[in-house]
Design a protein around this nucleic acid. Structure first.
Lengths: 235, 235
DNA sequence: GAGTGGTCTAGACCACACG
DNA sequence: GTGTGGTCTAGACCACTCA
């Protein structure tokens, strides 16, 4: 159980403040040497700290100490940007793509439309304090948002809906699970293939109770903690 | 990227139904041989499938195909047992421990009491279809539940509160994050140290708005998906 | 008792990041 | 160009599970 001991040793350095948020760890070979072990064993320790959310990896760049997670309340309309600002963080988004496409199987099933129905698809990469932390794909029903792509979609969707279509988010159905990052998603987040991730699926309804769009969000799992308050109802 | 290909190959077998929920995979050495690789590389593929929630490990027993996750709605009072039953699953709980203890640092901070204040601590292990999936620790404020430990605490706390203390859960504040299983928690869940997990912290209030207890839940991360509906309010 | 998974060693090559 | 992380090889020993 050597790798547990190494994990604890690194953990202590983080808790003691010797390694602070954003710091890069020494090279794996150096760490392995200083703990008198091999790279494989050392990497086991690092993977453990990664899955606890204490460290994260940037593909081929090394290991870093994780900053505080963003507190995410799925029951607030607050968008990503104001959520971050409210918590004293700096948010930024990059538009990856925006186009009209035939609904993917997953999107069709979520939005209850037949496969290949045309929907808007908007892909964004979200940064928190200049670290890429989330990739989100929105599938939007065009019937409620004619000519959406002619507007400025680089800003908040919430704002665009409100300002141009008099539409508000009123209800959301969400699902949270864990998964791992692969392919383009991993690349966009500068993550190594297989990094642990949180997956959040949201299905959104407007003030008239109509389903208007859905979100598929892939988060670096150390970057968020989901927090909310609920008034309980009987199941 | 051999390990990605192996992962995909195993994935296909699961999707094709050749491997179904609960099935044990062949021995690592045999799998490695049949994929013409080493155990280390093969284990990388398996770890990937584990973090996607497709496979899980039982410590020293091998790799198994994950069953469907339990849908968990934090806004329902529904307890573990009825949640499972409602979804056609079989639930069982084992009482690990129940005693009066000085509040741990974490418990004290959650319950807003001074450290070392005495609180009830109840530890349970929850099974889903005979698979251990969650370890939960309850810290309970004794002032609202005198002589709690003299009652039958092997059953549902919700029921005990209602039947003996006329107390209902009315509001909950919850936080979800990811972590990994270590030590006793891992052992209780028959998991290898370092297995990925979901951590759910709940702070519960009764019908008079009084904070009455808190839960700390460690879930095998493939065993649940958090799902809920929220009416949105402005942040 | 045989075989398994958990853990560890001691290397290697490559493509990429970074200076 | 140097060094890094990503990936992979080919073993080994041990403690445990299970038949």
């Amino acid at each position: 159980m050597q790798y547990i001991k190494i994990m604890e040793a690194i953990n202590e350095q983080i808790d003691a403040g010797l390694l602070t948020a954003g710091n890069k760890l020494p090279a794996e070979r150096k760490l392995a040497e200083s703990f008198n072990t091999t790279r494989i064993t050392l990497r086991e320790s690092l993977a453990l700290l990664e899955s606890e959310g204490k460290l994260y990896r940037e593909d081929r760049r090394g290991w870093f100490v994780s900053p505080e997670p963003l507190r995410y309340d799925p029951t607030l309309t607050t968008n990503f940007s104001s959520m971050a600002t409210d918590q004293g963080r700096v948010a930024r988004s990059e538009l990856l793509d925006a186009k009209l496409v035939p609904a993917s199987r997953r999107a069709a099933s979520l939005l209850s439309v037949s496969p290949f129905t045309e929907v808007y698809r908007i892909d964004r990469l979200r940064f928190l304090d200049e670290r890429p932390v989330m990739v989100v794909t929105n599938f939007i029903l065009p019937e409620y948002f004619p000519n959406l792509l002619e507007l400025d979609v680089t800003t908040s969707l919430t704002d665009t809906y409100r300002e141009h279509y008099n539409t508000l988010y009123a209800k959301t159905r969400y699902r949270v699970s864990t998964t791992s990052l692969l392919g383009e998603t991993a690349q966009a987040l500068r993550a190594t293939a297989g990094s642990p991730a949180m997956f959040i699926e949201r299905l959104n309804y407007d003030q008239h109770g109509r389903m208007i769009d859905c979100d598929l969000e892939y988060w670096r799992h150390d970057a968020l903690s989901i927090e909310s308050v609920a008034t309980l109802s009987k199941g």
